Amino acid sequence: MKPLKHLYLHFQDGQRLILRFPQQSDDPGSIARNLRKQLESPFLSIQVDGDLLLIPRESIKYLQVCPAPAALPEPTIIGAELVD
């Protein structure tokens, strides 16, 4: 069984959507390329319970993927911590 990942979508209007899905690939390079493609698209596309969910990028404040993929898109700042 592939490891599970969590995606937290934080929207401009303050709402949040939490998704759980299996790791999409074992190839770190493929993961980084696909992540970059998603970020360059005007819509975030996700298959959810057999349906295609298209979320306009301009409605998203930020995304959080947990745990982080092994390969990250360049440039990514590594080792940061959230501070209140």
Rank of each mutant, 00 (worst) to 15 (best):
E40L: 12
Q24C: 03
I78W: 06
I31Y: 08
L7Y: 02
K61G: 04
S59H: 10
L52H: 10
I31D: 12
P22K: 05
A70E: 15
L52Q: 07
H6E: 15
Q24R: 13
T76M: 11
P69T: 05
E81L: 13
L54E: 08
A71L: 12
H10R: 11
E40S: 10
I31K: 07
L52M: 14
P42S: 07
L53N: 00
K37H: 13
K61A: 07
L17S: 08
S41P: 03
L9I: 15
L17E: 06
S59A: 14
P75W: 06
V65R: 02
D13F: 09
P56K: 11
L52I: 09
L52T: 06
D84R: 08
S45G: 04
P73L: 13
A71N: 11
D26C: 06
K2Y: 06
S30D: 15
R57T: 08
D49P: 00
R33D: 14
D49I: 00
R33I: 09
L63Q: 04
R20S: 05
Y62Q: 09
I46W: 03
D27T: 06
P28S: 12
S30A: 14
T76P: 01
Q15P: 02
L44M: 08
R33T: 12
R20D: 00
G79C: 01
R16N: 10
L44I: 05
L44E: 00
Q24P: 08
V65S: 06
I55H: 01
P56D: 10
E40M: 11
R57Y: 07
M1I: 10
G50L: 00
K5L: 12
L4A: 09
Q12C: 05
L9M: 08
C66R: 12
